[in-house]
């Protein structure tokens, strides 16, 4: 008998992730919380690592040792995109003005959600992996003739190959280091193929591989769906945004770039006469 059968008169949240038992004195407080059958506070706490718990929430099964290693390495690599990254800069803009701390993370999430280096890029790149797999000819075709959405959407259209940096020169060392490290772990067939054919793909797109491209390949090896990869990539990049926002909050806007001489107005009408 399901919970719904017991209380047919009340609407319920339907979930395969979470089950709760109530405290005897309060139906609105849980005495036990189960995540996919595991007692979170009675069993997992103290045994499970954070990365394993995140995996469990999305997959409902424990990771293998190598899956946990890949996922953890990816999380470390993404945790701080650095203070030049658009999403971190967005967070720091909240910090320097003394905005709410939540707004710093909202800013990082919103800006870091986009097509350029953001989670939408990972979502789309993972769709490419699902479509092309490890077939070089299919990759060449999709890079040279990317799919176009017939309908308009709130998302802008891609202006570059997802997973590659349109403003890059050669593939940056940290991107190669991440790729090499992940390839040293078992269960990384996609990443190893990417390592082998990186130059081919870069030649097709005329742009170097980026972190989002390595992340998408890793998510493919870990068998995450594009929407899972999109949302996981978003929160894995938040620690750095948070730390940098707090640091700039203390430093203040006077020691943060304002680009005072960086803007040129090309159609300034000039002062309007008072009697005009």
């Amino acid at each position: 008998m399901t919970e719904a059968d017991k209380n047919p008169q009340r609407e319920q949240i339907t979930t395969k992730i979470w089950r709760e038992e109530a405290e005897p004195d309060n139906p609105f407080a849980a005495s036990t919380c189960y995540c996919s059958g595991y007692d979170v506070y009675g069993d997992l706490l103290g045994k499970i690592s954070l990365i394993e718990y995140i995996w469990l929430l999305f997959k409902l099964e424990p990771p293998t040792e190598s899956q946990a290693k890949i996922f953890e390495s990816l999380a470390v690599a993404l945790a701080n995109p650095g203070p030049r990254d658009h999403s971190v800069r967005a967070a720091m803009n909240a910090g320097v003005g003394g905005s709410t701390r939540a707004s710093a993370l909202i800013a990082a999430i919103s800006v870091g959600a986009g097509n350029l280096g953001g989670s939408r890029e990972v979502y789309t790149a993972l769709q490419y992996w699902q479509q092309c797999g490890t077939d070089l000819a299919t990759w060449q075709e999709i890079i040279l003739n990317p799919p176009k959405e017939e309908r308009a959407d709130v998302w802008p259209e891609f202006e570059h190959t997802p997973g590659f940096d349109p403003n890059g020169a050669s593939c940056p060392t940290p991107v190669k280091q991440l790729l090499d490290h992940l390839c040293s772990i078992e269960g990384t067939d996609t990443l190893q193929w990417l390592q082998k054919h990186r130059s081919d793909l870069q030649n097709y797109s005329q742009t170097p591989l980026s972190f989002s491209g390595v992340a998408a390949a890793a998510f493919h090896d870990l068998e995450f769906q594009p929407e899972q990869a999109e949302i996981i990539y978003l929160f894995l990049r938040l620690p750095g945004a948070a730390a940098h926002a707090l640091e700039q909050e203390k430093t203040g806007f006077s020691r943060y770039p304002f680009f005072a001489n960086g803007l040129t107005l090309t159609n300034d009408p000039g002062p309007i006469p008072e009697n005009a």
Partner: peptide, 24 residues
């Protein structure tokens, strides 16, 4: 507000024990 009964867990509840180190 939602009481714990308002969560409808749709999988069969099997009480599992975590083995540290994950699946081999």
């Amino acid at each position: 507000p939602l009481s714990t009964q308002r969560i409808n867990y749709t999988s069969e509840h099997v009480h599992r024990k975590w083995i540290s180190g994950g699946k081999i």
